[in-house]
Amino acid sequence: MVKKKGEPSVWLTKASADEYNETSKTVWAGKLVSDSPPVKCYRVNSPAVTFEWMDGEVIAVHLINGHYFSFVDTAAPVFCALASGASVVEIGMAIDVLPAGAASQNQYDLELDAWIARLVEEDLVKLDDSFSADSSCPEKDKWLSSVKACKSRHLSIEKFTDIEALLALDPVHDISSAGWPSRN
């Protein structure tokens, strides 16, 4: 199944897709702007989160809670595309050119939504309200091309918590003007 450009399902969860169908007009920043959905972009939650591209694998580290994550196969360039400013629609379009897999396109869009929701839940990315739909950069285009070149559609995420316990033992305290810091 091939999805047409501009279809909202790429960026909407199933629940919000139903809502979208009921109210086709979109209110964005308090204004009625169009009947198309707003372009959703995310940014990496830096400086709390940092990530590295490691020969086809992305390792993202949450420096506050000590969790770190591995993204392999398609998930790796998708994460980098998201981090470089690609909108969810652009990523969905890039994935769109992949050969059809076992899942239907709608199911796949839901998988992408769920995957991004998990990134938000893990505090790795945040919704970026400052995104400009016309923005283009070589970095983003490079990663979108990488997404298009992927053979697999599966968006994986592997979480590691083995340093969480170590971090819990090393809480960071702030000195206040009252003297020695109070316990956080």
Binding site: M54, G56, Y68, V172
Partner: peptide, 26 residues
């Protein structure tokens, strides 16, 4: 692979000492 090497380095060294908690260290 290098990704696994980084994960193992993170597990052993990132929180070895609090002063190393930084993007630069990663």
């Amino acid at each position: 692979p290098s990704g696994e090497a980084l994960r193992r380095l993170l597990a052993s060294s990132l929180f070895f000492l609090p002063v190393t908690k930084s993007t630069t260290t990663v």
